[in-house]
Amino acid sequence: MSLPDAAREALDVFEQAAGWEQRARLLMQWGERLPPLDATQQCEANRVHGCESQVWLVAEQTDGRWHFKAASDARLLRGLLALLLVRADGLTGSQLQQLDLPAWFTALGLGRQLSPSRSNGLNAVLRRMAQLTDGA
């Protein structure tokens, strides 16, 4: 699997994280790297429903490649969003379809964030991403 540079970097640091505390610190650091979303884009149309916190996801396609922006009011979820975007951003529709995102989060040691009972919203974000990029 060839990874984008930022994703490779994320994998390196998360793989070395010892314990939940360090993972949490890393998540918050990565969350701060998430580029901000314009206030106008934090609108109802971009809201991801099914999360306990507020989450917005924007998907745009240029030259056949998908680019995403995301925001949340919860810090740890911002970190998860950042890790999602470094993996998915810039891929084509068919690359996205083949991308195994649960495996990506599991590789980062964050697989539990995708368990069905979690209401943190990562599952909802993945569903929304698939919906937005479906058929493209």
């Binding site: 939940w20 993972r23 949490a24 999360c51 306990e52 916190s53 009011d73 919860a74 810090r75 740890l76 979820l77 943190n120 919203g121």
Partner: peptide, 13 residues
């Protein structure tokens, strides 16, 4: 503190 963040870290523990 966002309650989702707090819930996340309590779950971790």
């Amino acid at each position: 503190v966002h309650n989702a963040d707090l819930a996340h870290l309590l779950t971790e523990q």
